[in-house]
Design a protein around this nucleic acid. Sequence first.
DNA 1: TTAGCCTTGAAG
DNA 2: CTTCAAGGCTAA
Length: 487
Amino acid sequence: MPPGLHLLHRLRRPPAAAAAVPELCPVCGDKVSGYHYGLLTCESCKGFFKRTVQNNKKYICAENQDCKIDKTHRKRCPSCRFQKCLIVGMRLEAVRADRMRGGRNKFGPMYKRDRALKQQKRALMRANGFKTEAAASLVSSNQTDSAFTGSFPGLYPVPIIQTTLVPTTHYNHNCYGLPSLGTSTPSNPSISTQRQYTSSNPAIKSEHTDIHMSSQASVLGDHAYSEELQEETFSPQVPRMPQLVMEFLRCDPDELQMQRNIAAHLQREQSSWEKQGKPTAFSFMCRMADQMLFSIVEWARRCIFFKELKVSDQMKLLHNCWSELLVLDILFRQVQHGKRSSVLLVTGQEVELSAVASYADPTLAHLVQRGQELLEKLHGLQVDRQEVVCIKFLILFNPDVKPLESQPFVESVQEQVQGALLEYTLCTYPQYLDRFGHLLLCLSELRSLSTLAEDYLCCKHLSGEVPCNNLLIEMLHAKLLHVHTSW
DNA sequence: TTAGCCTTGAAG
DNA sequence: CTTCAAGGCTAA
C-alpha cells in the first residue's frame, strides 16, 4: 500500500468550516431585515420588489439577462434583480392591490412554520456539535429549506455562476411525478433554460396588471404556494414529502431492472470465462462491482442537477465518491433484504455470510466486519428509501471536491439536499428528532468504510488481482493518479 | 430611483 | 397588550 494513503484521504476530505453565517438576502446577499413578500430578504430588495410590482414597472436588461446581483451591483440592472426576486421565490401576490397598511396576510402561518423549522434545524445542529462535515452550512444563508417553498425554489446561489441558472417553474410544474423535468440540452443548459424561463414568465416582459385580481396568475411559484396553502388548509396532519425528495425518487433506478441487466451481463461474461478457466470469487465480485459502477454512472448522468454539470466536473465528483455510492448501494440492499445471516447480491443471488468469512483474507474480513457494524446502525434506524436517495445526492455533490468549475452550484445542491433530508426526517419521524444527525453519522461512517474498501481494492489492483478493462480499474487509476500527483 | 427608517393594524 | 410584515416617507 502506498505510504500515507489514509492520511491523504483524510486530507482529501477536510471538515467543513464551522461557523454559521448570519442569514443573508437570497437576492443580493445583504443583511436580512425580516420576512418580506414570502421570504427573508433585505430591506432594499423588499422596497425594490414593492416599487416594481406596485408601479407595474417594466425593465429591459441591456446584457444577456444574466447580470450578477449582489449588494454592490444590485442597482445596475433592475431587470435581472427583479428576475432574481422571482426566482428565489418572492411573491407577487403579497404586494397588496389596495395598498392597505398594517395587519397580516395569508403568509403568516408559512412564516411561522418556516421559523419553527429553522429553529429546529439550529437546535439539531447544536446538538450534533457541528461535527459532521455536511452539517455546518445548513443554518447559513440559504432559504431552500423554507417551509412554503417545499424545498425547491431555493437554488438562489446558482445565478452566482451564471452558467447554470435553473428556472424554478419547471420543478414546480413537475412536482408529484409529472414526467417532463429537465428538457434542457445538456450541452448548454443555461441558454435553453433561461429562454424557457423568460418566455414563460409573463411577469418579466409582458403585462402583469392582473396579478392582484387573479389568484391563479401564472407567475413563478404559484404552484408551490397553492400546494402549500392547500396543505395548510386541508391536510396539515399528513407528513409532507419535500419536492426534491420526490424528484430524487423519480431519478432512482429500478432495482429489478438493474438486477436483470447486471445478471444478464455477468451471465454473458461467464460463458467467455469458461474458456479461460474458472474465475476466482474475487474476480467475480470485481466484475459485479464494475457493473454496479456502470449503473451508478448511468444514474448520475441522468439525474437532476448532475446532468447540468460539465463533464469535467462530473468526472471529478464521481471519481471522488464512487466507492461511497457503491458501498451504500450494497448496504441498503442488505437493509431491504433483512436477513442477518446472508448477503443479497445485486444479481438477486444470496451468499451465506459464513461462506464469505471462510473465503476472506484478514483485510476483507475486517471490511465485512465494519460493514456489518454500519448495517446494524442502518437496521436500527430502519433507514428508508427516501433517506437513501437523499444521502446518495449528499455523497455525489460533495463540495469538498476541488477544483470544480461549478463549485457554488455543487455547494448549493449540497445545502438544498441537506435541507430536504432534514425536512423529510422531521416531518416523517417527528418523534425522532435526532434522526437527521444519526443519518449524517452513518454517512460519515460510510465514508471511512468506503475509503478502506478503496484502499483494499487498490492493493489488490497493484498486485494484479483485479480484472482488467473496466470502470473499476479506471476509478482505481484515478485514485492512484491523485495519490501520485498530490504527494 | 434607492434604501433606511417610520407608521399601521390584524393576528396572536 | 405585543408582534411584525405590510405600505409610506424622504435624504441622498
